[in-house]
């Protein structure tokens, strides 16, 4: 018999919060834990990798060009004799920086607009939703190419002028132009899904009885928003952000691959794949290394996102 005798001790279960329950469900999901592990390893590499790698990602060793993987060069070297392992790790940093900054900007814009649209409704809702639809209807790639083509040269020139005027070395690093353009254009196309999600969440939460109950207690709109609406809306948002980080990494690689993202010599998985693709028949490791890491990162975020989704929205429980 599968019955468990009921004892007073069992009735006094330790208290569990919804968050803790979700965490228990997450750690029991093997794929999600695998994803989390991959992400932690990559994040560690992104944060500390450059200090740990034996080579600088820019240092060239022209005697050892296109070397196959060995103990000295785990992933081999490229056509300038640079250590591919170090470059992949530095590319991880690029990917994480871009993904985190872009997602942060997109989530901020999306949450603010979505929450306003959902909570206030009316004409504000209509305008914001119109803006969302328009943004979503513009082809992503085209927008990024146009922004790059039209803004890159003026921005670089402006930086140059600033450097000449102030001699501040910050302005000599044209690498910032790349980043600003990548961040800006990607954030511009990434916020609408967050806005839609948050609006839908707020609309549905706004009609829940516990909001009416809170109003009946006389609580102010601000308290209701902060203590009732937001905490109940973050679950789906966390899921969406996790998936969004993965998507942002893929986007960054795709743009760099096409030459409208991060430009050489700054390593990015995308431009490394692009370089590797030209010589893959002779030196397959140049393509395989960045592609494998990109694949791993995508899979990691996707597994974690799925796991979070199952953990935060358990089906069949009340």
């Amino acid at each position: 018999m599968a019955t468990i005798p009921m004892t007073p001790a069992e009735l006094d279960e330790p208290k569990t919060s919804l968050w803790r329950d979700a965490w228990y469900r997450l750690v029991r999901n093997k794929l999600a834990i695998f994803g989390l592990f991959v992400i932690i390893v990559l994040a560690f590499a992104a944060a500390f990798g450059p200090y740990l790698t034996p080579y600088d990602f820019l240092s060239q060793d022209l005697d050892a060009r296109n070397a196959a993987p060995s103990w000295a060069h785990l992933f081999g070297t490229d056509d300038l004799g640079r250590d591919v392992f170090s470059r992949v790790i530095y590319g991880t940093r690029t990917a994480f920086v871009v993904a985190i900054v872009v997602t942060a900007i997109a989530v901020t814009i999306g949450v603010a607009l979505g929450a306003m649209a959902g909570f206030f409704g009316g004409w504000l809702d209509r305008i914001i939703m119109w803006l969302t639809d328009v943004t979503m209807s513009v082809p992503n790639l085209l927008l990024v190419v146009v922004i790059n083509a039209s803004l890159k040269a003026p921005l670089a020139a402006w930086m140059e002028a600033q450097y000449m005027a102030t001699l501040n070395p910050f302005f000599r690093e044209t690498i910032w132009v790349d980043f600003i353009l990548v961040f800006g254009s990607m954030a511009l196309i990434s916020w609408p899904p967050y806005a839609r999600l948050v609006r839908a969440q707020v609309l549905s939460i706004r009609s829940r009885p516990y909001i009416t109950a809170a109003r009946a207690l006389g609580l102010t709109t601000r308290i209701i928003l902060m203590r009732y609406v937001v905490p109940n809306a973050v679950g789906p948002l966390i899921v969406s952000v996790s998936a969004g980080l993965g998507t942002a990494m893929v986007l960054e690689s795709a743009f760099s691959f096409l030459g409208v993202g991060v430009n050489p010599p700054t390593p990015s998985w995308g431009n490394m794949i692009s370089d590797g693709l030209r010589v893959w028949q002779h030196y397959p490791h140049l393509l395989a290394a960045p592609a494998a890491v990109l694949g791993l990162a995508t899979v990691g975020f996707s597994f974690l996102g799925d796991g979070l989704n199952d953990a935060l929205n358990p089906r069949g429980s009340k």
């Binding site: 009885p209 203590r227 009732y228 905490p231 109940n232």
Partner: peptide, 12 residues
Amino acid sequence: FQDPYSTLNPRM
């Protein structure tokens, strides 16, 4: 209210 399952904030 009627429905005790939905009148309490699940996060509090």
